[in-house]
Design a protein around this nucleic acid. Structure first.
Lengths: 359, 359
DNA sequence: TTTATATATGAGACCGGTCTCTTGTCCAGA
DNA sequence: TCTGGACAAGAGACCGGTCTCATATATAAA
C-alpha cells in the first residue's frame, strides 16, 4: 500500500489548463462553474481535470471571493448535550445552504471566547453564532459586528449589542415551572444553577452575567412574588458546577430549618448532579422532594420516577439561529431581533401534590 | 449602536506598512513574527497595527504556507454523546497544539462522508480524523492519504488502508461482558446493535461493514463458543436504529420460545432504547432480564437499577487520535498502527445471578 | 457588404499574506 | 583606510484561485 506520495504539490487550474491546451482563464471558468465556455472545451477541461485528479483549493477560492463558506460556531461546551444538539441543528441548516461549520469551545470562559473569536474572524468565517459566556462583557463581540461579520447570539441575548439572538423563552418557562409547583401546593421552591459565582446565594440579580440564567431566576421570583411568597430569593442557589459542590449546595438546602419541598434545576447537567445528590442523601422523589429540570435530556425519562422537565426545542433553536444568520449572509437587511423559542412543560412523575398540612 | 460599517474592506499589512512608513515586507515581518526587525520599527508597526485594528487574514497566510492550522473531524453524529465527547478530547489536544478543529457530520452515510471528505480536503485541512461509516468502502479515504493529508481513523479500523486508527478494544470488551454474563449463569445472551442491515439476523460476520460492531459480535460469539454454547449467533440482532424498530427487535426476542436471559447493547443510544422497550413491555431489570450496555452514558447511573456498562474512555480516545495525528503532522514517520484503548467493565445493578434451575 | 451583437477564449491584475533576493548601513579587525 | 560580516529594510515573486478587460470569431441585422 505504500503510495509514493510524490505528488506532494497539488494540481492547480494552471496544470489542468496546460493538459487541456487551453488558457488558465478558460480552465478556471469550467472548473469554477462561471462564465461562458463551449461544450467542447468544457469536456476537454473536465477530462483533463479528472485525469489529473484536480481538487479545487477552497482557500485560494475564498481569498479572492472574500467568502469562506464557513460559519463559525462558538459554544460553551460541545460535550454538553444542549450544545451538541444545537450544533446539530445549526450544521444541518448550514449544510443545506452550502455552508460549513467550524466549531470552537469557550469552556464558558471569557478569555477563551475572545481568542476563539479572533481566530474565527482570522479564518474569515462568513458569519458567527456565539453563546456568550458573559452578557456584560462584549467589546469583542462588538468588534465582530464592526468588522462586518454577521453575528447571531445563541441561548443568551445582549440587547445593548443590537444583534440577532435566538434563545429560549427563559422568563416564561421559569414562570411556568414555578406556577406548576405552586399549583401543586409547594411554597418553598429552590432554584439551583451551575452559574459560577463567588457567593452561593443570590446577590444583585442584574449582575448575573448569563442572561438565560438571569431571566430564569427573574421568572421564578416573579411568579412567587405574585403568589405572595416572601422568602423566594433565599432559595435561589448558584455554583453547582460539579458533583461535590452540587452535593454541598443540596445538603445545605436540605439541612435548612425550612428546607425546600421542590427544586428547579437550571439545566440537564445540574439536574443530573442534583438527582445524584438526592440519591446519595437517600431522598425519594417525589415523596421527599419534588423536582423539575430544564431540558428534556435522555436521563430524565428513565429515572424512577421520570423527571418533569421544561422541554426546550434545542435542535429547533439551533436551526433557527443558523437560518437567521444565513438570511443575514444573503444580505437581508432586517432589524436585529431576539427570537425566543417557546418551551413547554412535560409533566412526568417528579412533582408531588402537597397536602395543605405540609405547606 | 449603529456602527457605520464603512470599513468593509479589512486592514492589510500594506495598510499598516503605509501607516507606519515602512515597506510591506517589514510590516509583514513584524506582524507575522518572523525575520529580523529593529525594536524601533517593530514598535512603530505594532502601534500602527493597533491603531488600524489590524487582524491577520489566516486565509492568505494559509495559502502561502500551505498549512491551514485546521484539523478536520468527520464523525457519524455529533449529537451522539460518544462522538461529542470524543470531539471534545480531540479539540482540547488540538487547541493545545495550536490547531483548530472543523467538524463535519456523515450521518453514518457513505455519500455524505465522501463529499465531506472532498470538502475538507478542499479547505486544505492539515490532517483528518474520520469515523468511517463503512469499513469496506474506502477509495475516498485512500485518496486522502494519496493527496498527502495525514489521516487517523477513529473508533473503527481498516487494516487494508494502512493508516493509524484509534479504537476501543472491542473484541476484548465484548468477551469481557459476555464472560461476566456467563459467570453469572446466563446461557442465552442477546446482542443488539443499531447497525443498519436488511436482515435483523446475523448473516456473514465478515460482511459487517463497521469494524467496531463486527469485533464486538466476534467477541460475544467467541466467548460463548469457548463456553460450548451453540445458539449464540441466533441471539445476535441488528437494525435497532430507532425506538419502534428497537421495540420490534426486543419484542421478537422476548416472545421467542427460548428468550434470552441477558442483553448486551451495542452503544448507549441502543441501550437507552432497549431500556425503554423493556420498560414498556413491563419487564423488570435484573429480575426478568439482565442487561449490559456499551458506554458509560449519563443515563446508565440514574436508572433503577443502574446499568452495568462497558466503560470506554472516549475522551481519552479522542485525545489519543488527535495526538497521533499531530505527531504525523510534525513529520514523525512512524509506521501506521492501531491503538486499541482498553475498556473496563463497571458492575452496577443490572445483571442478576441466575440460579442453576433457570439456566 | 458593412455594422452590430452575441459568444468564446486569452492575458494579466488581484486577493493578502510569506519569503527570497538585493541593497544599504554600521562596526570590528587588519 | 579598506574589507567583511552582521543586521535592517526594501522590492517583488509567489500561492491558486477569480474576475475584468481585450480580442477573435460567428451570426444576425441593416
Amino acid at each position: 500500500m505504500e503510495e509514493p506520495l510524490t505528488s506532494k504539490r497539488s494540481v492547480t487550474v494552471a496544470d489542468v489548463a496546460r493538459a487541456a491546451n487551453v488558457s488558465k482563464a478558460t480552465a478556471a471558468r469550467v472548473l469554477g462553474g462561471y462564465g461562458i465556455v463551449s461544450d467542447k472545451v468544457r469536456e476537454q477541461v473536465l477530462a483533463a481535470a479528472a485525469a489529473l485528479e484536480y481538487r479545487p483549493n477552497e482557500l485560494a477560492r475564498s481569498m479572492t471571493t472574500g467568502k469562506s463558506g464557513i460559519i463559525g460556531v462558538l459554544v460553551g461546551d460541545i460535550e454538553n448535550a444542549f450544545f451538541s444538539l444545537a450544533v446539530r441543528g445549526i450544521s444541518d441548516v448550514a449544510r443545506m445552504a452550502g455552508f460549513n461549520v467550524i466549531i470552537a469551545n469557550s469552556g464558558e470562559e471569557l478569555d477563551a471566547e475572545k481568542s476563539a473569536v479572533d481566530l474565527l474572524i482570522g479564518k474569515r468565517v462568513d458569519g458567527l453564532i456565539v453563546t456568550p459566556a458573559r452578557c456584560d462583557r462584549m467589546e469583542h463581540l462588538r468588534d465582530i459586528h464592526r468588522v462586518g461579520v454577521p453575528l447571531v447570539l445563541f441561548d443568551r441575548s445582549i440587547p445593548e449589542l443590537g444583534v440577532d439572538a435566538v434563545t429560549g423563552d427563559d422568563f416564561d418557562a421559569a414562570m411556568m415551572a414555578t406556577r406548576h409547583l405552586l399549583d401543586m401546593g409547594h411554597r418553598r421552591i429552590a432554584y439551583i444553577s451551575a452559574m459560577d459565582a463567588e457567593n452561593e446565594f443570590l446577590g444583585d440579580i442584574s449582575s448575573i452575567s448569563n442572561s438565560a440564567v438571569r431571566e430564569r431566576v427573574e421568572g421564578v421570583l416573579k411568579e412567587q412574588a405574585d403568589a405572595g411568597i416572601k422568602k423566594a430569593r433565599y432559595y435561589v442557589r448558584l455554583g453547582a458546577t460539579d458533583q461535590p459542590r452540587t452535593d454541598g449546595v443540596v445538603e445545605r438546602l436540605l439541612r435548612d430549618a425550612a428546607p425546600p419541598t421542590a427544586l428547579i434545576t437550571s439545566d440537564s447537567l445540574v439536574g443530573l448532579r442534583v438527582f445524584k445528590s438526592l440519591q446519595t442523601f437517600g431522598l425519594s422523589i417525589p415523596r421527599d422532594i419534588s423536582m423539575i429540570s430544564f431540558l428534556d435530556a435522555d436521563w430524565t425519562t428513565v429515572t424512577t420516577p421520570p423527571i418533569t422537565v421544561i422541554d426546550q426545542p434545542v435542535y429547533e433553536m439551533g436551526k433557527k439561529a443558523a437560518e437567521r444568520l444565513i438570511s443575514r449572509l444573503n444580505g437581508k437587511g432586517m432589524p436585529a431581533e431576539r427570537t425566543a423559542i417557546k418551551t413547554s412543560l412535560i409533566r412526568r412523575g417528579s412533582v408531588a401534590s402537597l397536602p395543605l398540612s405540609d405547606q
